[in-house]
Design a protein around this nucleic acid. Structure first.
Lengths: 200, 200, 200, 200
DNA sequence: TATGAATGAGCGTTCATTCAT
DNA sequence: CATGAATGAACGCTCATTCAT
């Protein structure tokens, strides 16, 4: 196997994973057949089994890839300890939202796919928890830098943050979300979270 | 046709709905067969079709029932405009959590079932949005009574509240949640939401 | 069992047979369910099995009854050796047609039912052959009386006669047959059969 | 995609159609399962659905094929306007009988299959009417050539002819028909039809 | 005697997976 | 390495039949 061979095979593998995510997102795992994915790619469906063990294998790897993609294009470009002031923190949260929205515009099926695989609840949970570490780092940095309350339960707050963000993603995945609504989530929603709901 | 007769059919219907929710929660809609539900009840699978049109009919009605159950046992016992002070509000949110946890202890499969039906993403969304109205009422009452900030975007905040609460439910559905963690969500989590994350 | 009891049961039996023939004629044997017949009569479908062994039993008995009915109301009222001249013979054949048409108007489903049970080809054959003896008698009488050709192969001709008559019945059973077409079969068709197709 | 490839699929299709006709003829449409046809061919029953939409599709196409086969091997080889004399006409009718008998010897199940589909009465009627046009041409040719009576009601007589011929087919399909009986139908039956039943 | 709730054998159909070409 | 014809396990659903009331 020359290097070009391995690359070609790897590229084909990723093509199939992409098509799988797309098709699964559109029709759902059970409703989509292997043949649908093959047709979508214009290849024979037998070819599938040269790259993946079986249908379960494909969906699992597609999920992993989706989670990795989201992580790469959103979180990894944003150093969780870069903010030094509350304003910077606020801006950073907004940037994360912006990146999530941009990703959703580029690959609208990614999040849809992720949510449709909630068939096994643990699976989605594990995927979301992949982002939990990141949000906790964000919060701990704020505490260290002194612009977030020192008594924050970072585990609880981190989970809440992820829950909200992915609920936003879910909503904008099931129906096109207006730019205005996105803005409200980014600015108003974030400010609310920082300042709290109680009157002062 | 005594009153007990009419009740027998209705009781059988509910038994089947309950078993369906249980089985669907455990194995998932597609993985679970009608025969599984029938076996679970110790009845013939043909009996199923005397009470429900088909598999889709069952899952739809089971979802409706689940949503109704949650609504009845949790929200309907809690008047959304009963709180007059921040402390009362805080206590009310805690009571809602308590009721959700209690429901989950009584019927652990209810929430699992709900989440597994995310197969069609809109389906779960509609279910959750059924609770959105309630949370918005909670928030508007707080604003009217003067203990919540008057500039709250109740739509955004309401959705966030629902997102968090159901994420908690999801977590405690996939793995037993410790009493201590529940407590942290109820008190610390709620306090955080009211007071905000920023340092004062 | 008093005489009134036996009569009531017999009456009920016949009601069911009639309803069965009607329903089988309309929907076909396999498409019609026992429940359809019961509903048609306004009785519980369990009652069926007090009068008949099973579905096959019912259809068999209904066929026998249908054949008997046709025989009674058509052929038995017409003495096969009553004609003494060709004109009387011609008139007799027309009367048989008229009686068949009248029966079909009274119970349109009878012939339809008979033909739909062709599922087993032998069954219909046996039913038709029940009329073969009658037509042979008709022909033999004509030969004896001297107005039909003495060299007629009565078996062949008798079968042909039955075939034509029941094809007419079949046609007028699948779609309403115009009075004019009926007339053509009765007079023109019969004349043709007597006089032959060849030019003289 | 050589010519042999295209032929392989077509050949398999025809094999299945043939087996279906055979099995349906023997057991009847409803009594025969797809599995019976598959077993009869020694193929997996899933293979079926690569060539036919569903069971209804198969039976419909098999009927069309049966009608076409009969038409091809019997009627299409016999120009309906080839006879010029009564003797030639008589001989032509006999040839049609001979061809039908030969077809039945080659594929005994063809006619049985056709008759068993009488489940829907119109179905068989439509099939038979496909031959009506042919017999009417036969008769009109005889009138034109002057050896048949000019006042023949060709519609009536044509239908009668078809009815007789297919009744013969039906009889020889349900039970083996002796060579002698066949001969009687061909010669005596035909002569009778031409010369009429009345004495001269 | 009449009823209809319960039953399960049976069948049509799908589709992931295999393997000969 | 790519293909797609063949396969059969699996499942949803129907309906004739039974039997407790």
């Amino acid at each position: 196997m020359t290097s070009s061979d391995g690359g070609a095979a790897a590229r084909r593998r990723e093509q199939i994973l992409d098509a799988a995510a797309r098709v699964f997102a559109e029709k759902g795992y059970h409703e989509a057949g292997i043949a649908d994915i093959a047709t979508d790619l214009g290849i024979g469906h037998g070819t599938f089994y040269r790259y993946f063990e079986n249908k379960k294998d494909i969906v699992g790897q597609a999920m992993d890839l989706a989670v990795r993609r989201i992580g790469q294009s959103v979180l990894e470009e944003e150093d969780p300890s870069s903010s030094n002031t509350l304003a910077e923190f606020h801006a950073q949260i907004e940037r994360v939202y912006l990146r999530l929205f941009a990703l959703q515009d580029r690959q609208p099926y990614l999040i849809r796919f992720l949510y449709r695989q909630a068939t096994d609840p643990t699976r989605l949970g594990l995927a979301l928890d992949g982002f939990l570490g990141y949000t906790e780092q964000l919060l701990r940095n704020g505490i260290t830098k002194g612009f977030l309350r020192p008594d924050i339960d970072t585990e609880i707050a981190g989970q809440a943050l992820v829950a909200i963000m992915f609920d936003v993603m879910r909503r904008s995945a099931s129906a096109e979300m207006s730019a205005e609504l996105r803005q409200r989530w980014m600015s108003t929603g974030t400010r609310m979270m920082l300042e709290g709901l109680q009157r002062r």
